[in-house]
Design a protein around this nucleic acid. Sequence first.
DNA 1: GTCTATAATTTGATAGAC
DNA 2: GTCTATCAAATTATAGAC
Lengths: 180, 180
Amino acid sequence: MNQRASDIIDSAIQMIREGGYHAFSFRQIAADLGIKSASIHYHFPSKEDLGVAVTQRYTEDFLKSLGSPSDHKKPAHFYIQTFQDSLEKYAAACVCGILAAEAGRLPLVIRETLTDFTTRNIAWLEEALSYQCPDWPKKKVKETALSTFSALEGGMTFAALASNPAHLKQIGAWLKKLYQ
Amino acid sequence: MNQRASDIIDSAIQMIREGGYHAFSFRQIAADLGIKSASIHYHFPSKEDLGVAVTQRYTEDFLKSLGSPSDHKKPAHFYIQTFQDSLEKYAAACVCGILAAEAGRLPLVIRETLTDFTTRNIAWLEEALSYQCPDWPKKKVKETALSTFSALEGGMTFAALASNPAHLKQIGAWLKKLYQ
DNA sequence: GTCTATAATTTGATAGAC
DNA sequence: GTCTATCAAATTATAGAC
């Protein structure tokens, strides 16, 4: 993966944040980077290829930024903070949440990488909650992990719609009370 | 609003369920109804006009189907069941949740109707929780309403992605335990 | 690696006949 | 209200020169 390919992915991610898979075109990315759309096809033959690269990169970066649950004293709190920080920084919803909403019209390979994002996030949260709430039964851990992920993804989407980060903060505060 | 206009809206709603605002075109709807795209422009001059009509109709139908919170013994439970039923029936996420994810590239008027959907749903849930959990402080009611809405919207989106209604059922079960 | 040029398709939209 | 015909623009993608 060279620098140009990496820049193309970055540009696509930013455009997806602004409105989804159909909100980025090769020409727009080309204009953004000061090159021509044919050059993008050299790095990513089809839009599907670029879409897969985007979701994979986003997933890897997201999970890398989380580190290991055991790196944090209250990992579930840290997870919530990550969503809030991202909303503040980009004033947009989660890239994989945006793409998930369009899933029905996305190539199968992209849907599969979205499923991978989901699986790994929920697995991380389950480990986080097991660590943070050691006396919880496994079923409660699983349900809470799934619900936490869903509340943050949905909350981020609607907070971005309302341009209101406080919306997501309220949800975060509410969730944290449940981890006691 | 005549029958043809109503049918056009229905068709557009179904296509949005399959992949969002950019997943429906006037030509596709025309083919679906056995007419020509120019006829759709007669009923809805622009795509934006149709988009507004879709979100307004969806919002009205959704809230009408909820009735009044006081119509139900446990209105918050009923609200959750409504989301589960819709997922089972259409195997797709909430139309306004899908559109909210694309909000950055939607006309302002459509974003405003999406905000209206959000506001009215949360207001309904606040009334439901006040009714169902009369001893809760107002702040808890507000936070729980917002979080319930977000968890169901996000849960529905990712349950649809995974083609797994059980995903949403787990979230519903988890939420109901909190209303006691 | 990047360019020019271009193909093939789709899209939102309009004019005007019936 | 619906049609035919058409437009202008945008899109994904490819061929081939440099």
